[in-house]
């Protein structure tokens, strides 16, 4: 588990960008955190790391947004879903096991269908207004390697 303190939305974006640069086909990134914690800001960074040129907008209404970058980015927001049945309806397997990287906001709502190996990122508000605690929890070797790549940024923030 890796904890990084981000002092600003820009820093959260930059961390997303570093993560994005290391992503490959089939990678699954789960995101949790309160409304306004910075999940979409972090995902915008991931998009930048994947060379997505379009604006990454909130998928709250559309549930799934798809972007073309160096590899496709599938951006889920399952805030409105009641549970996993709706993910089956949406045909999530085609995205999870497809040719792109997957980011899922509010992933805890659909926990049961998240593959065992994944990177789970939790963004927590702190007492200082713009500061956030970002926790990276990797399971599986692939994701542990990704987190190790991010380790260097932890040191500079202490």
């Amino acid at each position: 588990m890796l904890r990084i303190i981000s002092k600003s939305a820009e820093q959260t974006y930059k961390l997303g960008e570093k993560l994005g640069k290391n992503l490959q086909q089939g990678d699954i990134i789960c995101l949790t955190g309160d409304l306004g914690a910075g999940k979409t800001a972090f995902t915008k960074g991931i998009g930048a790391g994947l060379d997505v040129k379009e604006f990454i907008t909130s998928p709250t209404y559309t549930i799934i947004n798809e972007y073309n970058g160096s590899i496709p980015l599938f951006h889920f927001d399952v805030y409105r879903l009641e549970g996993v049945e709706e993910m089956y309806e949406l045909g999530y397997e085609e995205y999870f096991f497809g040719d792109g990287a997957v980011v899922i906001e509010w992933a805890d709502i659909v926990k049961d269908i998240i593959p065992q190996e994944r990177l789970w990122v939790t963004i927590l508000r702190s007492n200082e207004e713009d500061s956030r605690e970002i926790i990276f929890d990797a399971s599986g070797e692939r994701y542990q390697n990704i987190v190790e790549e991010l380790m260097q940024y932890a040191d500079t923030s202490h």
Binding site: I63, Y79, R80, L81, E82, E85, E86, E89
Partner: peptide, 10 residues
């Protein structure tokens, strides 16, 4: 549900 629920919607 406090929002649009897609499966319910279809």
């Amino acid at each position: 549900f406090g929002g649009v629920v897609p499966e319910v919607a279809s």
